[in-house]
Amino acid sequence: MRFRFVGIAGLVVLIASVAALAASPALKPFERGTWQSVLRGHAGRPVLVHFWGVTCGPCKVELPLLGQFAKDHPDVDVVTVSADLVPNLPAATQSMLDKAGLSSTENFIFNDGFVERLRFEIDPAWQGDIPRTMLISREGTVTTIEGSAEIADLEKWSAQQRSKH
C-alpha cells in the first residue's frame, strides 16, 4: 500500500511538472539544422517565424502586438527565434516572451557562437538585422518582412491563407 502511494505520488509530481513545462515550454536551442527541422515540422501549415532580440528597441514594441496576433490566429503556427548574438540571455528572453503573451508558442534562442553560419542556413542574404519576420505559406512560399511588421499586413496574409482552404 505504502509503496503504491509513493509511486502514485511520484507519478502525480512528474505529470504535474511535465504539464507545467507544456504550459510554458522552455526555450529551445536553435542550432545547425534547426531551421530545416522547423520547416519540416510545420510543413503544410501557415507559419509565422519571428526573429527578434532582447537588446533591439523596435522588437520590444512589436513583440506584444505579435502576442495578440498569435492569440487571435490559432490557425497560424507562430514560432519565435531570439537571434541576438551570444552570449544570449535565456532568462531575459523568456521574460519578454511571457510579458508579450508568447509563452505557449514554439520559442527558440540562437545557441551557436558561429552566428553567421546559423543565419546563412536561414537566408544567405540576411546580415542579422532584427526584427525580421518570415511568413511561410502552406505551399512553402516564404515572404520576408524586414524590420517591424505591420499587423495589418499579417492579417491580410493570414486571411489569404484561410481563403485558400
Binding site: G53, T55, C56, G57, P58, C59, Q127, G128, D129, I130, P131, R132, E146, G147, S148
Partner: peptide, 9 residues
C-alpha cells in the same frame, strides 16, 4: 533603406 529595425552594421 526604410526600416524600423536595428541593422547592427
Amino acid at each position: 533603406w526604410q526600416i524600423n529595425a536595428c541593422p547592427h552594421h
